[in-house]
C-alpha cells in the first residue's frame, strides 16, 4: 500500500477516500479535513477566543493539536467527572499534552465545584450515567466559557459520533434534535458558540493522528459507557462502512446538505434563545424554573 501523495510506504488507509497515506501526508490530510470543515461551516472568526473541551481521549487531544497546527491558538479545559482511576488517568493525559506542547489547560472538577460525581448522579437518578455526564459537560463547559470570556467551545465530536447520533435521532424521529444537529451552534443569550471541527474525520483517523503525532491519549474506554446505545449504533454503522466505504460520511453530510433545513422550523430548533427563561438557581437558560443541571445536582447531592 502506497501513499496517495508521495508513493512512499503507507501506514494507514482511508477507504472512504479510496486513499492511503504515509505519516506526514496523513497529518496533512487531517489538517485539510479540519480546515475544510471550519471553512465550509464558517466555524471560526479570527477574532474569537477558542477553548477546546479536553477529555484526555484521542478526539479532543487530536482536535487541540490540529487547531494549533492550523495556527489557531486555543486553550483547553478539562472537566473532572469523578469516575475513579479512569478520570485520574484522563487528566494525566490532558496535563501531559498541555505541558509537552506548552499550551494552557484549565481544570474544572465536578465534585469540588458541584459536590457530586457522575457515578453518584447515576446512582441517585437510577438512569444511565452517560445522560448525566453529557448534561454536566454541556452545562459546565458552557458556563466556563462564558465566565472566562471564550467566544467558542470546540468539541471533539467526530464523523462517527455525528453519524451515530443521527442514526439514533432518525430511528426515533427526534425532530427537536434533528433541528439542532449541526457542526455549528451559534452563540445565543446564555450560550457560547459551539463548533465541531472534526466532523470530516472518523475516529479511526483521529486515533491514527494521535499515534503518528506521538500524542499519548486515554485508550481505555470509559467504564460507565459499556453497552450503551451509542456504541451499538457505531457498531452497526461500522458494519455498513466495511461493506460500503463512505456510508457514514454520505449519511451525515447528506443530512446536512439535503435534510437539516427541513427540520429547522421545529419550535425547539429556534436558536435565538428568545424562548428561554433563566434558571432561578444558576441563571442558565432554561425552559423550566430550575434547569436540568441544577435538578440533577439536587438529586445527586440529596441524602437518601
Amino acid at each position: 500500500m502506497k501513499c496517495r501523495v508521495c508513493r512512499g510506504p503507507a501506514v494507514i488507509d482511508v477507504r472512504r477516500h479510496n486513499a492511503a497515506f504515509c505519516p506526514d501526508h496523513f497529518v496533512t490530510h487531517c489538517r485539510e479535513q479540519v480546515r475544510r470543515a471550519i471553512t465550509d461551516h464558517h466555524m471560526i472568526d479570527p477574532e474569537h477566543r477558542i477553548v477546546v473541551a479536553v477529555s484526555g481521549g484521542k478526539d479532543s487531544l487530536a482536535l487541540w493539536d490540529l487547531l494549533v497546527g492550523l495556527d489557531y491558538q486555543p486553550d483547553g479545559v478539562y472537566l473532572g467527572l469523578g469516575i475513579g482511576e479512569y478520570s485520574n488517568d484522563s487528566l494525566d493525559h490532558a496535563r501531559a499534552y498541555a505541558t509537552d506542547r506548552g499550551v494552557t489547560l484549565h481544570e474544572v472538577d465536578l465534585a469540588a465545584e458541584q459536590g457530586f460525581t457522575i457515578p453518584a448522579a447515576a446512582a441517585a437518578t437510577h438512569r444511565a450515567p452517560c445522560g448525566a455526564c453529557g448534561l454536566s459537560k454541556r452545562h459546565l463547559l458552557n458556563r466556563f466559557a462564558l465566565e472566562h470570556h471564550y467566544d467558542t467551545v470546540a468539541t471533539g465530536h467526530n464523523l462517527d459520533d455525528e453519524a451515530a447520533v443521527l442514526l439514533g435521532n432518525v430511528l426515533r424521529w427526534e425532530t427537536e434534535y434533528l433541528a439542532r444537529q449541526h457542526p455549528v451552534l451559534p452563540a445565543t443569550t446564555g450560550f457560547a458558540r459551539r463548533i465541531k471541527p472534526l466532523v470530516r474525520l472518523g475516529e479511526r483517523e483521529t486515533a491514527a493522528y494521535c499515534v503518528i503525532r506521538g500524542i499519548d491519549y486515554q485508550v481505555d474506554e470509559c467504564p460507565m459507557a459499556a453497552g450503551n446505545r451509542h456504541l451499538h449504533y457505531k457498531d452497526v454503522l461500522n458494519r455498513l462502512e466495511q461493506r460500503s466505504p463512505g456510508s457514514k460520511a454520505a449519511f451525515f453530510h447528506g443530512f446536512l446538505d439535503h435534510a437539516h433545513d427541513r427540520f429547522a422550523d421545529h419550535p425547539d430548533g429556534d436558536d435565538t434563545g428568545a424562548h428561554l427563561g433563566r434558571c432561578t438557581e444558576c441563571g442558565a437558560p432554561t425552559t423550566t424554573d430550575v434547569c436540568a443541571f441544577c435538578r440533577l445536582r439536587h438529586r445527586a447531592t440529596s441524602r437518601p
Binding site: G57, K58, D59, C130, G131, C133, G134, R138, T155, H157, D160, D161, E162, A164, V165, G168, Y177, R180, Q181, H182, L185, K196, E203, R204, T206, A207, V211, V219, E221, C222, A225, A226, N228, H230, L231, Y233, K234, D235, N238
Partner: peptide, 13 residues
C-alpha cells in the same frame, strides 16, 4: 490492536 470506538452519550445539541 487498539480499538478506536469511543462511547458515551454522543453529542447532544
Amino acid at each position: 490492536i487498539r480499538p478506536v470506538i469511543s462511547g458515551g452519550e454522543g453529542p447532544r445539541p
